[in-house]
Amino acid sequence: CHSECLGNCSQPDDPTKCVACRNFYLDGRCVETCPPPYYHFQDWRCVNFSFCQDLHHKCKNSRRQGCHQYVIHNNKCIPECPSGYTMNSSNLLCTPCLGPCPKVCHLLEGEKTIDSVTSAQELRGCTVINGSLIINIRGGNNLAAELEANLGLIEEISGYLKIRRSYALVSLSFFRKLRLIRGETLEIGNYSFYALDNQNLRQLWDWSKHNLTITQGKLFFHYNPKLCLSEIHKMEEVSGTKGRQERNDIALKTNGDQASCENELLKFSYIRTSFDKILLRWEPYWPPDFRDLLGFMLFYKEAPYQNVTEFDGQDACGSNSWTVVDIDPPLRSNDPKSQNHPGWLMRGLKPWTQYAIFVKTLVTFSDERRTYGAKSDIIYVQTDATNPSVPLDPISVSNSSSQIILKWKPPSDPNGNITHYLVFWERQAEDSELFELDYCLKGLKLPSRTWSPPFESEDSQKHNQSEYEDSAGECCSCPKTDSQILKELEESSFRKTFEDYLHNVVFVPRKT
Rank of each mutant, 00 (worst) to 15 (best):
D292Q: 04
E236F: 03
V238Q: 14
F365P: 10
D335V: 13
A316T: 03
I157M: 05
T361M: 10
L266E: 01
K112Y: 14
R176P: 06
I327H: 01
K301A: 06
P287A: 02
S158T: 12
K242Y: 06
T371D: 04
V128A: 15
Q199N: 13
Q121G: 01
F296R: 00
Q203I: 12
L293D: 05
Y160P: 01
N340F: 13
V397K: 02
H222W: 05
G313C: 03
S192V: 05
T127H: 10
F311R: 11
Q199K: 09
I134T: 03
P304L: 04
Y305F: 09
N200Y: 08
G125D: 06
I163P: 00
D335H: 07
L265S: 11
D384P: 12
S376G: 02
S116A: 06
E231Y: 01
V390H: 03
Q314V: 04
D335S: 08
D328P: 14
P304K: 03
D115R: 05
K112T: 15
K112H: 15
T113P: 13
K234S: 07
E237K: 15
W207L: 07
Q339K: 12
C261E: 02
E262M: 11
M346C: 06
Q121W: 15
E302Q: 15
G159I: 00
I232M: 02
E187S: 07
Y355A: 02
E237T: 14
S402L: 12
K301Q: 07
G318A: 05
D384F: 02
N340M: 03
E122C: 05
V381L: 14
Y223S: 12
R165H: 13
T383Q: 00
L212C: 04
S239P: 02
Q258I: 02
I188D: 15
F193M: 15
H341N: 11
E246V: 07
F174H: 05
D326K: 01
E246G: 12
N334T: 11
I188S: 07
P288G: 03
S319K: 06
Y194H: 13
L293R: 06
S239N: 02
V325L: 14
N150S: 13
E148G: 07
K209F: 08
S166D: 01
G243R: 12
D197L: 12
I395L: 11
L219P: 06
F311S: 06
Y355L: 01
K103R: 11
M297L: 13
W344L: 07
I327N: 01
A144S: 11
P330Q: 09
V325A: 03
L279P: 00
K242M: 14
L266K: 00
L266P: 00
T383I: 01
S376D: 00
A251I: 03
D206T: 06
S173P: 02
W322P: 02
N141A: 09
V359I: 13
I134C: 02
N224L: 03
N334V: 03
W205H: 08
V104S: 12
E231K: 11
P288F: 04
C317T: 02
W205A: 02
P225W: 01
E264V: 03
W207G: 05
K409L: 12
L172P: 02
N150C: 10
S119T: 09
D249S: 10
V104K: 04
N136A: 06
W286C: 13
P342I: 12
K253T: 08
L362H: 15
D315Q: 11
R182S: 15
G343S: 10
T323L: 13
T371W: 13
D315V: 05
E146K: 13
T213M: 06
L280Y: 00
L293Y: 03
V325M: 10
P351A: 10
Q203F: 02
T309S: 12
D367Y: 15
K253Q: 10
G343C: 06
V324G: 12
K301Y: 02
N198K: 00
L147D: 00
C228E: 01
M346H: 02
G125P: 02
W207R: 03
S173A: 11
F268S: 01
W352S: 09
Q354Y: 15
W207N: 05
S158P: 00
V390N: 08
L349S: 02
S192D: 00
D328G: 11
V397Q: 08
S171A: 14
S333L: 12
I135Y: 01
L107G: 06
S401T: 08
K242L: 12
R165V: 09
N399H: 11
D326R: 02
N130Y: 03
S401D: 03
K226F: 06
I181S: 01
V397F: 14
C261V: 02
Q203A: 15
D292P: 13
S260L: 11
S166R: 00
E231H: 05
T254K: 14
M346V: 08
S158V: 07
A120D: 01
I250H: 02
F220T: 15
S171K: 06
Q403G: 07
I137T: 15
P284A: 04
L186D: 10
P342E: 07
T323N: 10
W322A: 02
L186P: 04
G217M: 01
W352M: 14
V170R: 03
N141Q: 10
S166I: 06
L349R: 03
E283W: 07
F268T: 02
S173Y: 11
E146Q: 11
P351I: 09
Y305M: 14
A149N: 13
E231R: 07
D312Y: 14
Y167H: 04
P225H: 04
G140H: 15
F174R: 01
W207S: 04
S400P: 04
N141D: 05
I114M: 12
N136M: 02
R124I: 13
S321Y: 15
R182H: 07
N130T: 15
N211W: 09
S366H: 10
V324C: 04
S260F: 09
L349N: 00
Q339L: 10
K177R: 11
K218Q: 02
F311G: 03
A374W: 15
L362T: 02
R281N: 11
R247L: 11
F268P: 03
Q382E: 09
T323S: 10
D249I: 00
N211V: 07
F290N: 14
L345M: 06
S321E: 13
G343H: 14
L204P: 02
P411W: 01
G189K: 02
K337F: 11
S401N: 15
M235W: 06
N263K: 10
Y223N: 10
S402Y: 12
R244Y: 14
R370H: 04
N141F: 06
I271A: 04
L147F: 10
F358R: 04
A195M: 09
L147P: 01
F299W: 14
E148P: 08
R124P: 02
G125M: 08
G256D: 03
S269T: 14
S319I: 15
E237R: 02
F174T: 03
I135F: 08
L161I: 13
F221K: 00
L169P: 11
N136F: 09
K162I: 14
C317Q: 04
